[in-house]
Write a protein that binds this DNA or RNA. Structure first.
Length: 304
DNA sequence: ATAGCGCCCTGGTGGC
DNA sequence: TGCCACCAGGGCGCTA
């Protein structure tokens, strides 16, 4: 079987889908062996250190912050059932998929697919084994085991990262405060992880389309009503995408190999008719990013 | 402060 | 038909 590992962009919904997949498949499994085939994804961490920090430990949770996956690892010695207050993780497996990274849970005897970088061999409760594999065609992604206090070295800094847009507390008030005083165009502002966590190119375009806001509008030019519409659109789009298991792509799969079912309205559809008014969608380059929008549904208030 | 680069990397594409 | 320059993309880090 040929395993395709190409062209998809992991943003919040895709990472969340992977997180949920991991939650179903690797919790309370013990890491018994680490194989590194391409050390570039370790981003400077030595294979020996990765091994020291992971082998023999249990994956106790699958957490997500923005586009980061954080898997707390507990020492085997720690009895989580009887001493829960002592179960603070000794290390976190920190994973960022960047552009092309993929995590897959596979049979331990399955041959690794192309672009295989790291395999964590996991021992199951009844003694069986499975493989958690990290694939990355471009090796931009990262997989490291960090101490809790080292997590601050992740970039963008988790401390500086904006709020989670799917948290109930997030909304127009938070977004509006972040946009205040920013002259930068709204599209690249949404991509800034310090503004809001987890939004990437797909969902920035989708949110702006849904809220009827032109991507080149200066961030601080949005009215309170527009800010409110945008915040709601971000939430709606991300929620639908999470429910759909990520964006449809020929080559996007979750950890079990299932495709995403969210279909973008504008992303990657330049030249196609707008789903709302049939106007041909415009594609521009904005702050170095491909940007698609509808000139009729997302009018520019500022005329150049 | 912030915009605009180059960098990391490789498969796909368009031009010749 | 083949070669090759070029592009996409997240996020950092540097420069202006």
């Amino acid at each position: 079987m040929e395993v395709e590992v190409e062209s998809f962009v992991p943003e919040l919904p895709e990472v969340e889908t992977v997180r949920r997949g991991l939650e179903r498949t690797v919790l309370d499994r013990r890491i018994v062996e680490v194989t590194v085939r391409n050390a570039k994804v370790l981003k400077g961490q030595s294979e020996a250190e990765l091994r020291e920090r992971t082998v023999g430990r249990l994956i106790t949770q699958a957490q997500r912050r923005g586009k980061y996956l954080l898997l707390p690892l507990a020492d085997t010695e720690t009895n989580r059932l009887t001493v829960p207050e002592d179960s603070s993780p000794s290390f976190f497996l920190c994973i960022h998929l960047k552009m092309r990274g993929q995590l897959r849970v596979e049979a331990s005897d399955a041959e690794p697919g192309p672009y295989h970088c790291v395999t964590l061999l996991l021992e199951e409760a009844l003694g069986g084994r499975k493989a958690l594999r990290f694939y990355d065609m471009w090796t931009w992604g990262e997989l490291r085991a960090l101490r809790q206090e080292e997590i601050g070295t992740l970039a963008p800094s988790l401390a500086q990262m904006g709020e989670e847009p799917l948290e109930p507390s997030w909304g127009a008030a938070n977004l509006g405060a972040k946009l205040r005083g920013r002259k930068t165009a709204i599209k690249p502002t949404l991509l800034d992880q310090r503004v809001v966590a987890g939004v990437g190119n797909i969902y920035a375009d989708e949110s702006l389309f849904l809220s009827g806001i032109h991507p080149e509008r200066p961030a601080n030019s949005l009215s309170p009503e527009e800010t409110d519409r945008l915040a709601q659109a971000v939430r709606t789009v991300l929620t639908e995408a999470v429910e759909g298991g990520g964006t449809t792509s020929d080559n996007y799969f979750d950890v079990a190999g299932l495709p995403g079912r969210f279909t973008p309205q504008v992303y990657d559809r330049g030249g196609e008719p707008c789903s709302n008014c049939a106007t041909t969608l415009t594609r521009i380059r904005l702050a170095g990013r491909g940007t698609v929008f509808c000139e009729r549904c997302q009018p520019a208030v500022i005329v150049r």
